[in-house]
Design a protein around this nucleic acid. Structure first.
Length: 577
RNA sequence: GUCCCCGUAGCUCAGCAGGAUAGAGCGCGAGAUUCCUAAUCUCGAGGUCGGAGGUUCGAAUCCUCCCGGGGACGCCA
């Protein structure tokens, strides 16, 4: 719709002046769309804005798409003509969701990385939010012609993973009361270990298979038993274990990783979130990509050694201080492997990469950008968006979430209570960079008041009308719609609904450009509201024949928009409720 | 101390690449069903957009300062 106005302006002006916008006026009485173009032109040419608007409006009013083009102060307001609305709406009926497509991506290879939670515990609500936002974004980008690849980066190396293994081993020893062996790792466990119930669960599963063998020090035997046992998950990490040089904690940690990855994948898939690739941090170390990237940074004279560690000169490009790449004890920092990982993405040929990170990583953005620029990667190649935290309330009290202390609410728990659709929808009723308060009681108790049902109900209602029509007239409503006379839709409510449906196209574009999937959710609530209102005041079946046909057509268009919107945010569109 | 997010109706939040009389849901009050799903709809009350300056023809939106809430700042990941 905006496109139509912009094209009309271009037909007269050649090009749109910088800063000129086509927008929906706050007050619909002003028109369907309006533009500030006259203000801009007037400023440039030092003329009176109202006069510029008047001249321009006069020329524009010859365009058949508009019924009225009126200058107002410096604004120009547009009202679409009935013919234009009808012919556009007819396209929606014929083309379905394709009508709303616009190939702005042109096959651009774009990678979206999201969630990437450490595999040291179940996904909590915050991860769930990132998952849902990332998934919705990927759907929107794909819809608009981008070649999207969705990736999960598994932080399966480093201290956190060691702590996972230590925690599991500790709980395992606890099962057999082996205080003698627990002593060695007690300190680590108590200070930094993971306390969640799931650690005990892993330990119990482990003990069921290896018995006391691991406590007795039979690493090889324990590993063999695990490899031969019938586990409910893949042994991707376990199979890399080397009994000769390994430790029991390490075995526990690999076992834990396999266990957790199964959990995480299951949670995501139940949430309706899919990935195209899972990339392991370990493999980067193995492939030597980290060394490679450090070498390149050293060659560019961006590093120096101090206190036995290798530092990157990030400060000279705006960071608070320089950052360590390689610790004095010889291992790489997370930062180093993250640079390598992003360089790898670049080398894989993505033209753009979008990362969704938890808000606690915000200090990271600058240093990563600096490192990438040192490697000669253009600034706009990487976009990073922070997913703000989810605060959880239960019985009016905030539950502080900490994975280590074990006080977190897994996304699965909430999903099982209210359903994946509701969880997804709620996450998308806020802008993703603002805090979200998730009140479990509210969502549980009032699940029927949840806006997701409101929108789904609108879809189901339309489906119901179509079923009823078929039943009463034994005719396919789709056939009837093909020949419907849309000019019968003349009430303000009806033309308003047609416009709303058509505006979905603009909405998707805006959501895509701003990486703001929540706009789709708000659109859906708005459209559903207008529909419910209309439905309550107008009969479809039972009205006079040609009017009924036209109204069926109207409903079909609305259903197309609702179904597409729901699809883009990954929420189901039920036929009945 | 430095940095990030937030402050809009009783509550939860939209709106913020400046634009016309500031919106929605919930909650509250009053109503609507012989008929396609009442998980719905209609009407009403409810606001100095945290405060003060500034830029502008025009500021909830941009800038500065202040107040209040949340968070991040490691040779952790």
């Amino acid at each position: 719709m905006k496109e139509t106005v912009e094209q009309a302006l271009r037909d007269i002006l050649g090009n749109l002046p910088e800063g000129s916008r086509v927008e929906r006026p706050r007050d619909p009485r002003h028109g369907d769309l309006s533009t500030n173009t006259a203000f801009i032109l007037a400023k440039k040419e030092k003329r009176n804005p109202s006069l510029v608007a008047e001249t321009l409006a006069e020329k524009l009013s010859e365009n058949p798409a508009f019924e009225q083009v009126s200058p107002a102060g410096g604004f120009i307001n547009f009202r679409f003509s009935k013919d234009f609305l009808i012919s556009s709406f007819r396209k929606v009926l014929n083309e379905g969701e394709d009508y709303f497509k616009k190939d702005i991506g042109k096959g651009m290879k774009i990678q979206l990385e999201y969630v990437s939670a450490n595999p040291t515990g179940p996904l909590h609500l915050g991860h769930g939010r990132g998952a849902v936002v990332g998934d919705a974004l990927s759907r929107i980008l794909s819809f608009l012609g981008y070649d999207v690849s969705r990736e999960y980066y598994i932080n399966d190396a480093g201290r956190q993973v060691y702590l996972l293994g230590t925690s599991v081993f500790y709980r395992y020893l606890e099962l057999f009361g082996r205080k003698d062996l627990m002593e060695r790792i007690r300190d680590t466990f108590e200070k930094e270990g993971y306390r969640g119930e799931y650690i005990k669960e892993i330990a119990r599963l482990l003990s069921a298979i290896v018995g006391t063998k691991l406590a007795d020090g039979s690493l090889e035997e324990s590993h063999r038993l695990l490899m031969e046992s019938d586990l409910p998950f893949e042994k991707n990490y376990l199979k890399s274990f080397k009994p000769k040089s390994g430790t029991p904690e390490e075995l526990c940690s690999l076992f834990g990783l396999d266990f957790m990855m199964r959990e995480i994948k299951r949670d995501l898939s139940d949430l309706g979130v899919e990935f195209d690739s899972w990339v392991s941090e370990r493999e980067f170390h193995m492939k030597g990509e980290v060394e490679e990237v450090l070498r390149r940074l050293e060659e560019g004279a961006h590093t120096y050694e101090s206190d036995g560690a290798l530092w990157l000169k990030t400060q000279e490009r705006g960071d608070d201080k320089d950052r360590v790449l390689k610790k004095s004890e010889g291992s790489f920092t997370y930062f180093a492997s993250d640079i390598a990982y992003h360089l790898d993405k670049f080398n894989r040929g993505y033209e753009k990469v979008i990362d969704l990170w938890g808000s606690d990583h915000h200090g990271y953005i600058m240093r990563l950008r600096i490192a990438l620029s040192m490697l000669g990667i253009p600034d706009d190649w990487l976009e990073v968006y922070l997913i703000q935290m989810v605060r959880l309330f239960k019985n009016g009290k905030e539950i502080k979430m900490s994975k280590r202390a074990g006080t977190f609410v897994p996304v699965r728990e909430v999903m099982e209570e209210v359903g994946a659709d509701a969880v997804r929808f709620i996450f998308l009723t806020r802008r993703s960079d603002t805090h979200l308060d998730f009140d479990i009681n509210l969502v549980k108790e009032k699940s029927s008041d949840n806006p997701v049902f409101y929108v789904q109900y609108a879809h189901a209602r339309i489906a119901g009308v179509f079923r009823e029509f078929k039943k009463r007239f034994s005719e396919d409503p789709e056939e009837v719609i093909k020949n419907a006379d849309l000019s019968r839709l003349s009430s303000e409510a009806e033309t308003g609904l047609m416009k709303k449906v058509l505006f979905l196209k603009d909405e998707i574009l805006t959501a895509c450009r701003g990486r703001d999937p929540h706009l789709i959710t708000f659109y859906l609530i708005d459209l559903a509201g207008s529909f419910h209102n209309y439905y309550n005041h107008n009969r479809i079946i039972g009205s006079e024949q040609s009017l009924m046909e036209a109204r069926l057509a109207l409903l079909k268009g609305i259903r197309t928009a609702l179904a597409l919107g729901l699809k883009l945010i990954g929420v189901s569109a039920p036929e009945r409720m």
